[in-house]
Write a protein that binds this DNA or RNA. Structure first.
Lengths: 141, 141
DNA sequence: GTACTAAATAGGAATCGCTACAAAATGGGA
DNA sequence: TCCCATTTTGTAGCGATTCCTATTTAGTAC
């Protein structure tokens, strides 16, 4: 837990139990959770945990570039702790989001362009391996 | 207007005035509008135009891959008629979305991967040229 | 340790984009 | 022209996010 406190201090953010919990959750759960998923998980152990705190904290962590906000879903935002550049794949069937470990060659190019680029998002959408296999099995019967 | 009717018929979609209007609007306005923007623009000329019709029609056009849905904004969906692969840049200051005419080299690679890829989205976010210049001017004074 | 102050949290209300639903309108085929 | 399926409309509802304000907490000075 100490490492999260250090991280917050390094960015001049006041350390609170709630913020540590949220950071810990994001660091230990790489499933690109929604704000509600974070909220309900943390509320289990601390019933007074507030939804607003989750949103406030996520907003602040995002402002300090400690977390990434994914707009891959059409209905809600997803969050992740990992901040090194990678892309994402969303399965339209099961909803799972996977990390795609590729370096975008246009990142460098865009950095030199007329635009001041601060974020790069690569989203692929389709059907994941597991769901594809299930489809095949179904159609065989 | 006839070309839109043809397009709809080609995809087995029943031709209605509302659908033609929406297609026309998307084809003539390359500003990646929200559903509400489409709705309020078309409502001006036809006061009985319904929000639901806009959503229904966009959903149908999307299902037939006649339009693209962009999840680049954190708060709402954007739509575009253009369906050839390109990326997008969102200015965090003025909110404008620009087309970036690049071919994603990972598209091919992803097509051969374990994932069944149906959509590719490349989003860059930052400050656009115009807004960058305005910032410079302000800081000079 | 206590008192004070600014910041953070909690909880509920409000907002906003989008969807669901049922009634009315449309339109193509008999 | 009539009929029936489809589409459109308008309203109600829902879920994610934001707003508002009272309460609590963390940090500082005494």
């Amino acid at each position: 837990m100490e490492k999260y406190a250090k991280l917050l201090k390094k960015h001049g953010i006041k350390v609170t139990p709630q913020r540590l919990e949220i950071l810990k959750y994001l660091n230990e759960n790489h499933n690109h959770p929604t704000a509600f998923q974070i909220f309900s998980n943390l509320k289990e152990r601390n019933p007074s945990f507030s939804k607003t705190t989750v949103y406030n904290t996520l907003e602040m962590l995002k402002a300090h570039k400690l977390i990434q906000v994914l707009t891959i879903s059409e209905s809600e935002l997803r969050y992740e702790f990992d901040n090194k550049l990678h892309h994402h794949f969303l399965c339209k069937k099961c909803g799972k989001i996977s990390d795609i470990d590729v370096q975008c060659p246009f990142f460098e190019k865009m950095l030199d362009s007329e635009y001041k680029v601060e974020e790069v998002h690569g989203y692929f959408k389709g059907i994941c391996t597991r769901c594809s296999k299930e489809e095949e099995l179904k159609s065989e019967t």
